[in-house]
Design a protein around this nucleic acid. Structure first.
Lengths: 135, 135
DNA sequence: TGTACTGTAATAAAAAAAATTACAGATGAA
DNA sequence: TTCATCTGTAATTTTTTTTATTACAGTACA
């Protein structure tokens, strides 16, 4: 179980708190307390999802690509989550068994329904609302 | 990310399909295609949650502790899930940073809200309904 | 033109998950 | 009664995943 979502939220919160100023991956790594390369990797996902923008070179860094009001926690989730919510089984059920043969298909359906519910729930909260909790 | 939920559902589906007959952990391990000890560990959680019952000894084995109609997918989730849905960060954010100092608290709140939503969603489906999908 | 960045790839180290081994205890069958 | 077949766990090893580290090419500005 990894912590990509947490890291992504932490990054976005830092960027929002910077109020438009751009931040470097090294600076953010210091607040999150993880390796800067991981931060850049996460930022790469967030950039591809259109949530942050980056600038290379001397005065480079990262900033939000759009107002925090227009970024929902569902957007963050969609940007970083890859594995099914309820975990991913590494086994291959016995195809000679009636249950084993079909179970993955039904579990996938369940996972999809749940994923939709989670995205809906996370869609209720914006990054701005999340950040406003900080005093 | 582990596959405990999948395994638990697989176990319960097998037990339901057995129609009251008890099954051994070895038999179930064969359908799921994982180690029998893992199956017994999972069954241990399910037993503690009141979803299955077991009998030791020669003609021992496992069976459902109540009708599949009275077991919801939320019950299964609650019986086996331990880690937060969106993953668990292993870092300790920098306490000298305003954001770092508070972020875990706010992420926990978010996680709790999401957990409630997931339990609600999973509560809509019973084990019986899940099993009825199998042909 | 050198310094401070981003962007990745490749590799190593650490942590988590799963498999395996081992064995005590229960229960019914031979 | 004793043996075979189970459950229930603990301890250990193996495998897989996650995170950290190293390395370096490319960009932009001072």
């Amino acid at each position: 179980m990894n912590g990509r979502f947490q890291i992504a939220v932490h990054i976005l919160t830092l960027l929002h708190s910077a109020g438009g100023e751009s931040l470097s991956s090294d600076f953010m790594a210091g607040s999150i307390n993880i390796n800067p390369v991981l931060v850049r990797k996460e930022l790469s996902s967030l950039r591809k999802a259109g949530l942050v923008q980056s600038k290379e070179g001397h005065t480079g860094g990262y900033s939000l690509a759009k107002p925090a009001k227009q970024i929902s926690m569902a957007d963050v989730y969609k940007a970083v989550e890859q594995a099914p919510l309820l975990g991913k089984a590494r086994n291959t059920p016995n195809p000679a068994c009636t249950i084993g043969k079909q179970i993955n298909q039904h579990l996938n359906t369940l996972n999809k329904q749940l994923n939709d519910a989670v995205i809906k729930q996370l869609g209720y909260q914006t990054l701005e609302q999340f950040c406003n909790q900080f005093k």
